[in-house]
């Protein structure tokens, strides 16, 4: 019997303290501070009749309260003044806190939201090495890098495990892992996803975690994130990492989200996993997200 469907996931979430809500996630943009200041962008879009509202728990995020036209095709978009990026998706890079001059590994870069965000925080100084395995996702990545005027990224097609061949130790790694997603991230998610798929994702994520840690310098920071609500892709992967990799967890300092779970379907996990953050859509009004901060020891 296939373990899947809305009722299957509803029961799982109920056991974890979550619930399913049918909400419309508001469109959100992130100011591209490489090109324009937040104040100038808000004024400029306001003159076009676009009403924006600051997302209080992000650094450069604004909700689109009102717009009579698509914000994905106007001059301001094409010139890279902003990136359309869901609020929760802006958080992993904020936690990573990339600084000018650092060497950063970006695993699974397409379509480029987080890569362009890192370049902006780094003021285009330092180096981002990005990998993208899926060929069909590469054109949008390259176009977003060009559009947002990124000048410090190098992109390779392939698995991020190839980074080991570069023989460098990265200051920081962003592993925004491929995942099952969440029920707000795509239409008919409940019909498309099942428990076996979650387990397959989890296995891929563990392999990526190991490869990413191998590339990290001692005391270097790795941010692991997914837009999944499934503990097998999140808390249980962190338990596996603590048991199998030279890492510790540190607190994810965010104004939004719950502490991650340390009791998953009766299984007691390491208490430090509570330092990670879990974003339930019914509480945050965002997509589901999980963010962990690992430090190589």
């Amino acid at each position: 019997m296939v373990k899947g469907g809305r009722e299957f996931f509803r029961e799982r979430y109920a056991q974890l303290g979550g619930e399913i809500v049918d909400i419309d996630i508001p469109k959100t943009l992130r100011v591209n501070t490489l090109v324009i200041s937040a104040k100038a962008l808000v004024e400029r879009l306001s003159a076009l009749g676009v009403v924006l509202e600051r997302v209080p728990f992000t650094r450069d995020g604004y909700r689109v309260v009102k717009s009579k036209f698509s914000l994905g095709a106007i001059t301001e978009f094409l010139l890279g003044l902003y990136y359309l990026q869901e609020a929760a998706a802006q958080l992993p890079v904020e936690v990573l806190d990339p600084k000018p001059g650092e060497l950063i590994l970006d695993c699974g870069a397409a379509p480029g939201g987080k890569t362009t965000q890192m370049a902006a925080l780094m003021e285009n100084k330092g180096t981002i090495i990005s990998y993208e395995l899926k060929e069909h996702r590469i054109p949008s990545l390259l176009m977003n890098l060009e559009r947002c005027r990124v000048g410090n990224a190098t992109v390779f097609k392939g698995d991020s495990a190839l980074a080991k061949g570069l023989n460098v130790q990265f200051d920081k790694v962003l592993l925004d892992a491929p995942c099952a997603g969440n029920y707000l991230s795509e239409k008919e998610w409940f019909e498309k996803r099942d428990y076996d798929g979650v387990l397959r994702s989890s296995a891929i994520q563990k392999r990526m975690l190991k490869n990413a840690v191998d590339c990290l310098k001692q005391e270097g920071v790795l941010i692991y994130s997914t837009c999944s609500l499934e503990p097998e892709e999140n808390e249980l992967n962190m338990q596996w990492a603590l048991e199998n990799l030279p890492v510790r967890l540190e607190k994810v300092n965010l104004k939004v989200g719950d502490s991650a779970l340390t009791d998953v379907f009766g299984q007691k996990l390491d208490s430090s996993i509570a330092l990670c953050k879990r974003l339930w859509p019914h509480k945050t009004g965002t997509e589901g997200f999980f963010i962990a901060k690992l430090v190589r020891i």
Binding site: R147, R149, G151, A153, L166
Partner: peptide, 27 residues
């Protein structure tokens, strides 16, 4: 040093070749 690994994008994009024509990047 990374050129030998055949990157798809490196540093700042300046222009693209489209047949005999050059297409400038947005920057």
């Amino acid at each position: 040093s990374l050129l030998s690994k055949r990157p798809l994008f490196i540093g700042e994009c300046i222009a693209h070749l489209r047949g005999p024509v050059l297409i400038p990047s947005i920057g």
